[in-house]
Simulated assay, not measured.
Amino acid sequence: MINRKILNDKFIIRNAILDDVIEMEYVQSQCYPTLHQSEILDRNHFANHIKIFPEGQVVVEKEGKIVASASTFRCNFPEHDSTFLEETDNLWLTNVQIPDGDWMYGIDMGVLPEYRGLGLSKEMYKARHEVCKILGIKGQIIAGMTIGYGKVKDKMTIVEYCEALEKKEFTDPTITPQRNAGFRWIRILYNYINDPEAGYASILMYYPVDENYSL
């Protein structure tokens, strides 16, 4: 469904296949050094994601090497707060994937450190949006990690950080690019993810296919 060259033909973005899962596992291991091991995706998780929702799994490759990947599932709009493990069926997605769900929930996006700053995340968001349009999905949902909190955690609480972030008083390395890519703030999810550098929090956001759509 997705398979094209991007960024002056230097990279290829495409749907993931089973042959990619070992390299996807490596990307994951390099991207989340402070995330608890229980919340790190491995090759078996990626293989199951490809099995149950192949259209929603994306990789970026350069000269045959996977340098970035993104994982999603289909769902209905989340009405209640949950943890990352609860939302993802302990990372497997099997029991949360709804084949005719109205939304695409992005649970993971990683870019190898040496390839950051080139716009690969934005390209993956665009590819996922394209899949939403093809499948008739309303748009994307994400829970962005407040990873910038680690630099100011000795000066303020995570509550203060998130409230300031909502007012755009801070630039967060994860949340700010996501908002710049088109994602809209919904609410703060405290105690969502097991990562002290993120203050254990994330920001629930959505990016509708229809720009006039609002919650």
Rank of each mutant, 00 (worst) to 15 (best):
I17G: 12
E123T: 01
M104Y: 11
N44W: 11
N48Y: 09
N76M: 01
S38D: 15
F170N: 08
Y161C: 05
K155P: 01
H36C: 11
F77K: 09
R14T: 06
E114I: 03
G199W: 03
P54R: 13
T146H: 01
F84M: 06
A70S: 12
D108W: 05
I12F: 01
P113A: 03
Y32T: 13
I98S: 09
P177R: 03
Q57N: 14
I188Y: 13
A181H: 10
M145H: 11
K133C: 04
V59G: 14
G182K: 04
D19L: 05
K153Q: 14
P54G: 08
G117W: 09
T88F: 04
L118E: 11
G117P: 12
D195E: 09
V96L: 06
K5H: 12
D9Q: 14
W92R: 13
D20F: 03
I142A: 12
K122I: 07
L91Q: 14
W185F: 13
Y125T: 06
I6Q: 05
K153H: 08
V209P: 07
Q30S: 07
R187Y: 06
L112Y: 15
K122D: 10
I134R: 15
I158W: 03
E63M: 04
C31P: 12
Y149T: 04
V27Y: 13
P177T: 10
G144E: 08
E79Q: 13
K155H: 02
T94M: 04
V60T: 11
G150L: 01
L41H: 15
D20R: 04
